[in-house]
Design a protein around this nucleic acid. Sequence first.
DNA 1: TTTTCCTGTAATCGCGTATATTACAGGCAG
DNA 2: CTGCCTGTAATATACGCGATTACAGGAAAA
Lengths: 145, 145
Amino acid sequence: MQISSKFTIAIHLLAVIHYLGEDGKATSSVLAGSIGVNPVIVRNVMGNLKEAGLIKISQGKSGITLSKKPDEITFYDVYKAVDCVKEEGLFHFHENPNPECPIGRNIHTAMDAKLDRIQASMEAEMRGITLADVMTDIQNELKKE
Amino acid sequence: MQISSKFTIAIHLLAVIHYLGEDGKATSSVLAGSIGVNPVIVRNVMGNLKEAGLIKISQGKSGITLSKKPDEITFYDVYKAVDCVKEEGLFHFHENPNPECPIGRNIHTAMDAKLDRIQASMEAEMRGITLADVMTDIQNELKKE
DNA sequence: TTTTCCTGTAATCGCGTATATTACAGGCAG
DNA sequence: CTGCCTGTAATATACGCGATTACAGGAAAA
């Protein structure tokens, strides 16, 4: 099991948009070229990011730009925007525990809060990492070249 | 995307085994009945838990027992035992970023450590929760009935 | 030792989800 | 107006999860 690549695609997307800057020629085809996936996937992810208010899209001979500064865009924002993990939560609970069994009819109550805590801890870590951190690391790599 | 129910099945399994106790008639069929899944799934999960040294299995007219005390079995132990999340990590990275693009050829380096940190934070939380915590909550629920 | 039940495991099936791909309608910029 | 781009639907393919059947082998109990 893995979290859909839509998440890393979205971060990559934002990084390229920021790198190209205001006047940049960021289109779904250009972005798809850098990321190595189909342009339609990029357009879908772009749609998610737009709904979440992270980017601005203009049509025609366009130009896609960030709506916020890189240090205001957290991994959590992106993760929520692309909706990789559904409402039911990160953990798939087996659905038919036996209510005739003392464990079966209480296992859900006993575990739900604990699973939520685990997921919350992951999401908290995500709130502490921003697009700016990624850009810094990329620029450090580029200097080495 | 969700983490396979093998994880919650495994916890449920351990809870029933502990509840039935040493002389308990815990077999894959009995366990499957409480959990509400196919016995073969239970046997596979049992195999994982056995490899990880969490339970002892004897064949014939059997009896499955815990190898450790409930407060020595953490969620992390179980999660690792059932191998829900593969070696490549929790996040699925898009596989073909373009090396001709300055972002494309550095995005992996820039993100890997960050993704690991997120996963590590989740796993750390898991180390702090044990089977004993689950048993306590279940017993509290049973008292209410 | 024989019987009986249980585990271990392979093979197959159905289903849902991820990603790719094609196609086309609609919108904005030049 | 024209050309390029986005938005989105429809479809195809691949893969993983869980269900199910089937059977070989082993250990306990008689």
